[in-house]
Structures are given as C-alpha cells and as structure tokens.
Simulated scan of single mutants.
Amino acid sequence: MPFGIYVHVPFCAARCGYCDFNTYTPSELAGSGASPEGWLAAVRGELSLAAAVAGPRPVDTVFVGGGTPSLIGADRLGAVLDAVRDAFGLAPGAEVTTEANPESTSPEFFAGIAEAGFTRVSLGMQSAAPHVLRVLDRRHTPGRAIAAVREARAAGIEHVNLDLIYATPGETVDDLRGSLDSVLAADVDHVSAYSLIVEDGTALARRVARGELPAPDDDVAAERYELIDDVLSAAGFAWYEVSNWARGAGAACRHNLGYWCDGDWWGAGPGAHSHLAGRRWWNVKHPARYAALLAAGQSPEAGAEELTEAERATERVMLGLRLAAGLPAGLLDEAGRAAAGQAAAEGLLDPVALAAGRAVLTRRGRLLADRVVRDLLAATPA
C-alpha cells in the first residue's frame, strides 16, 4: 500500500474570510514563542518519531499544506523534504507537492523548491475577478496566479495545479468564464474547483449572518459546476474526483488519491491528522504547544480513534464513490446494491458501469454525491 507524508505549515500572512483551517497570523502568534524555526525543528522531531512507529517504509508521496507553505521559503521547504528523506527515504518516482499562495512566490522560490526535489505545486488562485477576490479576502492580484504558474513551469516543476472557488456571492457566469479562460491560458495540467462553503466561526459566516452578503445558492453552485466541467472537458481535462480534473499522464494528485483510496499516511505538524492500518489520530493544534511537546521528547498526539471494519467499509463507500473509477458494487450488501440500482434508474449512477460491477457517478450524480452516499449507506447497515 502506498505511504504518504503530510506536513502542515500553520503560518499565514493574513486570514482569508472563508478559511477555518488550523492557521495563525503573526498577530495571533505574538508572545507565544512559536516561530518557523521552532516549527521546523519540531517537524524533524515528529518525523523521527514517525519512522520509529511506522517502521521502514519508503515514502511514495509528500504533501506540504497549510496555511501558506510558500511563506516559509524554499530553503525551509527543502529542509522539510530532507527530513522526510532522513527519516524514511523517498520511493523512486515519489510525488512531492507543496501548496503556495501566488503572492509569496517568485522565480527564485520555484527554482529553490525544484532543486530541493519538489515535483508538483498547487497554487491558490480562487478567481480571476478582483471583486470576487475581495469577497474572499484574498490578497493577490488576479494576474499573479497565472504569472506564478509560468514561473513554476520555467523552473522545471513538472505538475502545476490551480485551485478555484466558485459560487461566491457576487460572482457572475462571466466572472467564472474569465477565471477558466485564465486557467486554460496558463497551461496547467490539474485544476481543483470547490463550491464556496460558509464555515461557522469564519469572518465570511459573520458577514452572511449580518446580511452583508447572501448565502451561496445551491442551484447556482450546480450550474457553475456544470460550466466548469464543460469547459475543462472540452480542453482535454478529465475528472477523476468530484472536485478535481487532470490532463495528461501522471497529472492526478497521487497523494490525495491515497486519502480517497483508504491509504496510510502520517500527518506531521500542528493539528495534522494521520492514519495507519485503521488507527486515526490528530495532533495538538497550537504551534507553540506542538513544538514544546516534541522538544520535551513527547508525542504531540491530542486524540485518536480505532476504526472498526464496519467504519472502514463505510468510509470506503463515502470516499470511493467520489472517484471517477467508482467503487466495487461488492462493497455493498443486497440492500445497498438495490439502492444503487435505484440510483442508476434516477440517472445518478452509470447503469453500464453498475452492470459491470462498479458504482460510478454520472455528472448529475456528482452534483448529488452526498445524497447518493447517504442512500447507499442507509441501505447497507454497518
């Protein structure tokens, strides 16, 4: 089974209004003693611990996420990858990804991470419309993401992804078309597109609650998704997960496929989650507490759960159904297969694939994926 390492960078220059990730701005960390250097030392310590627990397993994929990994610079990102090599070693052809905010990148940054061994970068574009970026509290200018793609390509980064957020209040069809035109002009080989979700406790949620912004509309989001799928499909991209499209050999994100295919991974960093052989655990969230525990030779684990076989089977259905490959109908019992047949009759599952033994979402089914999962699981008792 492939083995991945996720490394969480908790630092951001500013907090986007829609974000509820475990991230911290300089003002939020003031006086705590947390710093990028302390974080890096702690990550090295956790990776050494991981090697002692997981045993000798070459790493197939590395994903540095956040937060804003590009904010800590190419040298520190290279040091993170060196720590993974020291603790585990990289498998031949390993995929190594970092997320990046366009405004904290440069030609020198991309040259540095390419030299360190990164093979993939995921850039948070979100939109090419200035007023949409303002609603999202994104700080980069619309053209910066496209320039960053070109810089990454020039540095020799093999695979580049752009993230889009759609159905933001105030976004028009023309706004989204403009964003898609920019994506295609940038010549990336991977696109991730997510419908805006208003998360509790965020600045965006407070603005919606005060009536400053309307809540995202589900029907509008469905129409926008179909537009994205049409445009990307016409340009040679193929969906391989509900929110992800790739073009060309090797462009799909192997690290994320590990999550969706019930793989094993170790999550290092504050608040990071891990999964090994049915055991899931998560780290303490605050960077200062995380670093202090590891400096004292202690595990940063905050909590854990042991998944039963029934729970793992449920997760396989929930995650596997989101993939273009679908899931084996054999994972469902007789009632579940009957529910799958009903979903096919309603145009939510591909009837030809189902007859061949796999439950595969149609495009209409992708729009209603959560409902299909609920129906299959309700009919398949744990």
Rank of each mutant, 00 (worst) to 15 (best):
Y225P: 00
I228N: 04
H255W: 02
P216I: 10
R150K: 09
Y166T: 00
A50S: 11
F118A: 08
L213H: 09
R138T: 01
R206A: 15
A369K: 11
I72Y: 07
G341Y: 03
M318C: 13
P169I: 11
V7Y: 12
A155S: 07
V198N: 10
L204C: 10
G357R: 05
A249P: 12
A252V: 08
L204N: 09
G66M: 08
R150V: 01
H140Q: 10
A94C: 05
A345C: 02
L176Y: 10
P300L: 06
P328Q: 05
E301S: 03
H275E: 12
D333T: 02
R224N: 00
A252T: 12
S32Q: 03
G67V: 12
D60A: 14
D189R: 14
H275Y: 14
I5C: 01
G263I: 00
A291M: 09
R177P: 00
L47Q: 02
P381G: 10
S243Q: 10
V43M: 03
A30S: 14
P26M: 03
C12V: 03
R76Q: 05
T119N: 14
R134M: 02
G38L: 01
T362P: 04
E99R: 11
V80S: 05
A185S: 14
V191D: 06
N22F: 04
A116G: 01
A114C: 08
I5R: 06
D200E: 14
G117P: 08
A34H: 06
D60H: 15
V231T: 13
T61F: 06
V317C: 11
V373A: 12
V62A: 10
F63A: 12
S35R: 13
R366I: 01
G269E: 00
A339S: 06
A209N: 07
G320M: 05
G357K: 04
S48K: 14
V191H: 04
K285P: 00
R139W: 06
G65T: 09
A154C: 05
D189M: 07
Y290I: 09
A304R: 15
Y6A: 12
Y225N: 02
Y194Q: 05
A382V: 05
G112W: 08
A154P: 02
F11D: 03
L321A: 12
E311F: 11
A51Q: 08
R247G: 07
P102Q: 11
T105G: 02
R366T: 07
G66R: 01
V7S: 04
R254L: 13
N22H: 13
F11R: 11
R85L: 10
G156A: 08
A222G: 12
F88P: 07
Y259L: 11
E226R: 15
E346T: 00
D163A: 10
A378G: 07
L204W: 11
P26A: 04
A111W: 02
L257N: 07
A310P: 01
A186P: 08
D230R: 15
P300M: 06
A343P: 06
D86G: 14
V132H: 04
I197M: 13
A238S: 15
H190P: 01
L29M: 08
D175E: 05
L377V: 12
G117D: 01
W265Y: 14
A87D: 06
G297S: 09
A343H: 03
P58C: 09
V284F: 08
Y166S: 04
A147E: 15
P142S: 04
